[in-house]
Design a protein around this nucleic acid. Sequence first.
DNA 1: TCCATTAATGCAAAATACGCATTAATAAAT
DNA 2: ATTTATTAATGCGTATTTTGCATTAATGGA
Lengths: 288, 288
Amino acid sequence: MDLQRIKYFLALSEQLHYWKTAEKVNITQSALSRQIQSLENELGLQLFERNKRNVKLTPAGKFLKEKWEVELNELEYIHQFAKQIHLGERGTITIAHPDSISASIMPDILAKITQAFPQLQIKLVQVLYENQLDFLKNYKIDLAITRDITSEQGIKSKKIYSDHLALVVPLDHAFKSFEDLSKESLSAQKFILPTKDEGSSYSEIIQALFKSYDLVPDVFLHSEFGSTIIALVRKGLGIAILPDSYMHHQSPGLRFIPLPFKTDILINWRADDHNPVLSNILSLVFDC
Amino acid sequence: MDLQRIKYFLALSEQLHYWKTAEKVNITQSALSRQIQSLENELGLQLFERNKRNVKLTPAGKFLKEKWEVELNELEYIHQFAKQIHLGERGTITIAHPDSISASIMPDILAKITQAFPQLQIKLVQVLYENQLDFLKNYKIDLAITRDITSEQGIKSKKIYSDHLALVVPLDHAFKSFEDLSKESLSAQKFILPTKDEGSSYSEIIQALFKSYDLVPDVFLHSEFGSTIIALVRKGLGIAILPDSYMHHQSPGLRFIPLPFKTDILINWRADDHNPVLSNILSLVFDC
DNA sequence: TCCATTAATGCAAAATACGCATTAATAAAT
DNA sequence: ATTTATTAATGCGTATTTTGCATTAATGGA
């Protein structure tokens, strides 16, 4: 059954006149007549009660006119919706990102996306660094924003930003600026540091930092959760090293002392992911 | 857009394999390939992500698979429903009938209809005799069961039953049987009779009845409503003449004395009404 | 009774769909 | 790295379907 036939039927059911309808839908009266006939044959019922003079809907025709009008509108809407999905204007994308950028570049990125594609549904999740690649490969997330470089097969990666590390101390702490740091002053401190993962490039940078002072830090606690670390530092339980993106969080009572070490932020996605939503978001993000 | 194409798409979206799908839907792989291609062109989007080795739904394809499955089911149901309307198995018919047969032949007729066509919706209405033809012509009712013969253009009519007139008296009334009736005994009575309509064949029969006794009845009240008349007779306000169908109503305290006058029950419908529901009901009723 | 209107239909042309055979790409096996 | 098996796409001739033109036949109104 051709939807075009149903459209012809609907046109005729309005006009109830073959010639006028045929003209309106740009076919000949002969073609229209046969289209209606084959529609009737296909359905095994009569749509119009007609003689050579009058055309009138049968009860079944009346019923189908009402129902088909609804269904055709429905289908048209569905097709439009599908087209938007095809263009990447509709759909869902799940993004994992570190807490550190929640208040810095994430708002920028999200604002850009929602402005360009207001119909997109974005799911933000926080995933432990060690799980990110698995989640990406298993379609639990579509985009992973991370500080770790990956050379995984099938995962594409691109740097989108970089920020400095900063030493985070309470306001009343002796450290006021970078010049106050030395092997001696640092060795007296208790540190709160991120979890030391195998092969995590972010951990390696922090290790490199301490190595530059030829120091093994006294680590009081490991945590991956920036907000936890900040709270502990504010209570004077130790000092921490965090990306200076955290300065964008409202954190009174703390001093951020920038350090000459940079940490990159990368965006990762599946190489074989052809979801048009992803392509749209990638090209938006790369324009930053 | 051909619904067949959508069916092909749905089959392929299940199998995700052209050859197997083509075999399943009884066309060649070549034809299937081209059907999917033209569907994609028609919609202006890609349904499958495919190379020479793998077939996989795109996000838009996934969306359409879900939606189209629902829509196609819906359409199939609609078409079945329409077919039932065409066969007169579904639909609505409005029937007017006199109160007199509510408890006699109407239950028989209705039982027969609902047994043969359980999906039919029947509306029963009571219409004043004088309005019946108008209601029929103006599509307010589809079938009029009446005691009046009509020779109206465009209205078909057929007798389906006939019953006798009966004199209705209270149990304690002097009249016990037909032999008690005479010009003298009748002229002493007060009568409750139906409204005397112009050209109503039922009124004429009652007039003929009195004429056979060479009598002009003392009419105390006119009413078309049988139940009203019966209540009044039971209270001793007068005696009445009604079709003996009323004996099927539960009417304690009354005696029905059959009279040798018959009144026909006719069924009327529009000659140009081709509603299949009507045809079905007519052929059922005529089999009585 | 005749005329104007109008849906159906015969027929040939155009468009579309189909099947067969082949091609080209790719994953798996060696 | 090379070969092989698998499989979606495609060229081409054929079959089917649809279309438009011209005509027919039925019908309501004058």
